[in-house]
Design a binder for these strands. Structure first.
Lengths: 341, 341
DNA sequence: TGTAGCGTCGTAAACGTTTACGGCAACGCG
DNA sequence: CGCGTTGCCGTAAACGTTTACGACGCTACA
């Protein structure tokens, strides 16, 4: 005899009553409930999730899919660790667990996602690193699985998302550089189809236009989102005949490789080239010169994502009124030493 | 009508036969199997994991618990991303999925683990960031859940583990520094109870002894495993009356803060202080000066962990003969510019 | 021809829960 | 006193699989 049956036998009551007592239903006397809870704690009983899932058709878990491929921005650093913390702070209030689903490098994210959803492991899903055209969005809507994306995609449709303020960051970076006298400003974006690069680039163009500066396609550099990519960027910049005086980076760790390349040429960021990076993290905070970049609350972002996801699930409608969130997450510019200001 | 029942009805055969056909059992004709597989693919049928788990008492998933606390070495970088890839390469061969269980910052890892195991989400578990005394090990052995730890603990018992070669790394770092003429060599280890710091320190002491250098407790610095920790380390080093001429770091990103601190004093690693760090990653490869440190294959490590875990599970005894692996993972010294050689 | 063996398949129980339903006693009220 | 209501509980079905068991038809062989 195992599980709830053993517990019921021990207490000499029916398994139905035990279940109701544990689940906090009203039709069980206070005294019985007390006895059940104590016995459960004493015997270390915890309901079998498979049985429970089978019966009620849900899992009480939320999934967070990440891509392990090195070229995906954020896969390389502590970004997700902070976000996970934020998501869990919300989920914990509803007895939901967070499980992370790491898509192996080289596997098609859509195929991986299909496999994982087939396992019915989670009730809702957070997907990150949205691509320019992301088939996962159609797939999830078709499967009627509640989800939210961390990052907009270009895929049409009215799906929920939360995204960083790439547009605002690009605009403020340009504003800052222009008012410091720069007019030839390069931009580095990812070389893959992750959508954030496209948004960043759009913001860059719009900001230039606002200042009456003509867009020059030769100022756009597509490089891998890695330290190596920054090194390559530096190489290309140094090889130009009339070098830009400033560059804004879509990924902060590009700065490390760029610094290295500049240093090898006897140059220095801030003095010989103004650099503004995208996201503050411990590394960018301790680089020399310290990177001028944008700060955001990772746990705050995670919590917002968690709440927005639950808001799409009818089961949590009383806590989070049903709705499809589409939201830009704000970022704050933190001045460093790399932009020469 | 849903699931396997619908599939059976469609084909006008019994659900038992359908199940056997899908699971590759012998007692089903080749023709029937073919029809079933085609129909399943056509209807997009995939077995409900809850039903399957309930019946056969397993989940076909392996868990990987990580701790999100910032002070845990590895939580800050791409370490786990590489290891996940390696683990999955092995698990995929056995139709096992990897799910990552992130313990929130501030929650007791043992309590978290208990909660997650109660869900019966996984058949086996990988735990990382082993503490000096890690209650999770006793807990898992008592619960008879197959597991392996990434990192030794000081907890007694004959449990399986794979750990990096901290001892060898410390020894080779010391050898290199001594033969370059250094005799006052400091060491930085984590300020928390993660076990790897203690092993590193033991290796440090043993290596010094081998060279006939007396151990000096004032050469040991316990700092948080973060860039800030490195900055603090630099501060302490610079404040000493007779400064060591070299330092070895148990965590590579300490170097970033240390470099910063040195730079602010007009000093430079390699020239004014020899620095050897522990683990190579993209950041340490692009720092200036490039960090002399130790390289390892992350995916190779992950694959070894996956195989060692499966070797503890009777269900996979034909693929991996039963046994308890205890193994030191080798690392290779990659010379940089930071040790002045 | 009888029978043993084999290949193939259907039947039904079992896994551990939750929950709809009904029953029973106690209680209140007209 | 009759009857509806309420509080509490037990019964049993249902969730979607897997698998032990037995049945059936066929072949092969004595």
């Amino acid at each position: 005899m195992k599980g709830i049956r053993r517990l019921a036998q021990e207490l000499d009551i029916s398994i139905g009553t035990v279940s109701r007592a544990l689940n906090g239903r009203a039709d069980v006397s206070a005294e019985t409930r007390q006895r059940v809870l104590e016995a459960a704690a004493a015997m270390g009983y915890v309901p079998n999730q498979a049985g429970r899932s089978l019966r009620q058709g849900n899992t009480n878990a939320i999934g967070f899919m990440i891509e392990l491929g090195a070229d995906v921005n954020g896969g390389n650093d502590n970004f997700f660790m902070g976000v996970f913390d934020g998501v869990q702070s919300v989920l914990a209030r509803h007895h939901l667990d967070l499980i992370v689903l790491p898509c192996p490098t080289g596997e098609d994210p859509a195929v991986y996602l299909q496999r994982m959803m087939a396992r019915r492991l989670v009730d809702g899903l957070i997907i990150s690193a949205t691509h320019r055209k992301d088939t996962r969005i159609d797939m999830l809507t078709k499967m009627r699985i509640p989800f939210i994306t961390l990052g907009r995609s270009n895929t049409p449709g009215d799906y929920p998302w939360i995204d960083l303020d790439f547009d605002g960051a690009a605009r403020r970076a340009i504003d800052r550089l222009v008012s410091a006298g720069h007019s030839r400003i390069a931009v580095a974006v990812p070389s893959n189809d992750i959508n954030l690069g496209f948004i960043f680039l759009d913001g860059y163009k719009a900001a230039l236009a606002r200042h009456g500066i003509a867009f020059d396609p030769s100022m756009v550099f597509r490089v891998p989102s890695s330290e190596l990519g920054g090194y390559q960027l530096g190489h290309e910049l140094l090889a130009m005949k009339d070098r830009p005086s400033a560059v804004i980076l879509n990924y902060e760790l590009l700065a490390l490789g760029l610094y290295r390349q500049l240093g090898e040429a006897g140059l220095q960021a801030g003095r010989d080239l103004a650099v503004i990076g995208f996201r503050e993290n411990p590394v960018s905070r301790y680089m020399s010169p310290r990177l001028t970049c944008f700060r955001l609350s990772l746990t705050g972002l995670g919590a917002a994502i968690g709440e927005a996801l639950l808001a799409t699930m009818p089961a949590y409608a009383e806590a989070y009124p049903l709705g499809r969130t589409q939201r830009i997450w704000p970022m704050e510019l933190v001045p460093g030493e790399s932009d020469g200001a």
